[in-house]
């Protein structure tokens, strides 16, 4: 048992939970959060792939990938949220 193993399993669990949410949830914000959970799960997996038991240095490549993934994910989140806001405005306008 080591940190890599523990957090690897954590990541896979978080990914599966997010996947379930993305498939089942109906509410817009919750679906976005479910997708974000998936991305954190994938991040866990890559960080675990980089990990070496201290004092060995970790592999920097997956770290760079996860940082890229985080920036990509906030970009996608921002667009999804903008669409949610816009759809809300349009629906409210047509209700009135």
């Amino acid at each position: 048992m080591n940190s890599g193993l523990i957090f690897g399993l954590t990541g896979i669990a978080v990914f599966a939970i997010g996947l379930f949410g993305a498939l089942v949830m109906v509410e817009p914000l919750r679906r976005v959060l479910a997708l974000k959970l998936c991305s954190v799960g994938a991040g866990f997996l890559l960080v675990v792939g980089a990990w070496q038991a201290p004092p060995d240095m970790p592999d920097p490549v997956p770290h760079a990938l996860v940082i890229t993934g985080i920036v990509v994910m906030i970009s996608a989140t921002a667009v999804a949220l903008a669409l949610i806001r816009r759809l809300h405005s349009l629906e409210r306008a047509s209700d009135e």
């Binding site: 997708l35 994938a42 990938l65």
Partner: peptide, 18 residues
């Protein structure tokens, strides 16, 4: 939603490749 989920499934696969 479909697009992000598809990309994230792909990313998880990339993680396993690495």
């Amino acid at each position: 939603y479909a697009s992000i989920l598809g990309a994230l499934l792909f990313l998880m696969g990339v993680g396993f490749v690495y």
